[in-house]
Simulated assay, not measured.
Amino acid sequence: MRTPSSILAAVTTATLACGLTAPVAFAADGEGTKLNLAEETGSAATGASATSGGSIVRTIVGLAIVLAVIYGLHWVLKQVKTSKDADESGDSLETVATLNLAPNRSLHLVRVGGEIVLLGAAEHQITPIRRYSEAEATALGLLEPPAMTLASLEAETAAPKGLMNLIRAKAVAK
């Protein structure tokens, strides 16, 4: 199985080889032909403009290739970093919040499975300070409340309608 670093090395080598050989591929046989330096009025002017136009096209194509290689390497490196980050942390470990207290000292709120753990990190040690269940952490405001389901959303929209009817009934009665 190939590792991400070996894949990155292969992609880098291939793009570098293509990038170095691209100018040769775009260069026509005009490199080997002899120049006609005779002073001709009409044909010399059109030949010079055609040559300069060709070099502008080659320059633009070369620039596009270089930009494509740079973008491709950026994308590959981002994908490798994302896969490494996902492999290192796993699914059951997630940093919820971090608070820096001083240089080399901080508090971390970490979700470990179904628990929330408050950790104190110093220069040479990490100390668990307190463990919370998810319900306790949500009640204390350490976590965002869970996303609303369709049933809870319908119940919430039904409540104001009843409340508004109650207010209207009391306002009309006065």
Rank of each mutant, 00 (worst) to 15 (best):
V24A: 13
A173R: 15
E154L: 15
G120N: 01
L140H: 12
G141Y: 01
N165Q: 08
A159R: 12
V66D: 04
L101N: 04
E115N: 15
I167S: 11
A17E: 13
A173S: 15
I129V: 10
S49Y: 00
T51N: 13
E156P: 00
Y71F: 13
A121I: 14
G30V: 05
R105D: 02
L67N: 06
P23N: 07
T33G: 08
I126W: 07
S43N: 11
G90I: 00
T12A: 06
V96F: 04
R130Y: 03
T157G: 13
T41M: 11
V24D: 10
I7Y: 01
N36A: 08
P103R: 08
L16W: 08
T157A: 12
S83A: 13
K78D: 14
A135Q: 07
G19E: 00
L109F: 11
V172E: 11
L20T: 03
G19P: 01
S133G: 00
R131K: 10
A48C: 02
K161R: 11
M1E: 04
L109G: 07
T12V: 03
E154T: 12
A151G: 13
I65K: 04
K161T: 12
T12R: 08
D91E: 06
V76H: 01
L37R: 01
P4V: 03
R168Y: 09
L109T: 04
L101S: 06
E115V: 06
A38W: 05
S106L: 12
Q125T: 15
A9M: 06
T21F: 05
D29V: 03
S5F: 05
V61E: 11
W75A: 10
L118V: 06
A64E: 02
E154Q: 14
D91R: 07
A173Q: 15
R58G: 07
I60Q: 15
T98L: 09
R105I: 03
G19N: 01
L143D: 01
S43A: 14
G162T: 10
I126L: 07
G162D: 09
A44G: 13
K81G: 08
E134M: 07
P23T: 05
V110A: 14
T3N: 06
A155S: 15
M1T: 08
A171H: 02
G47W: 04
S92Y: 00
L35H: 03
H74L: 04
S5M: 07
S5W: 05
M1R: 06
V96I: 13
V69E: 05
V69N: 05
G162L: 13
L73T: 03
S43Y: 03
G62C: 01
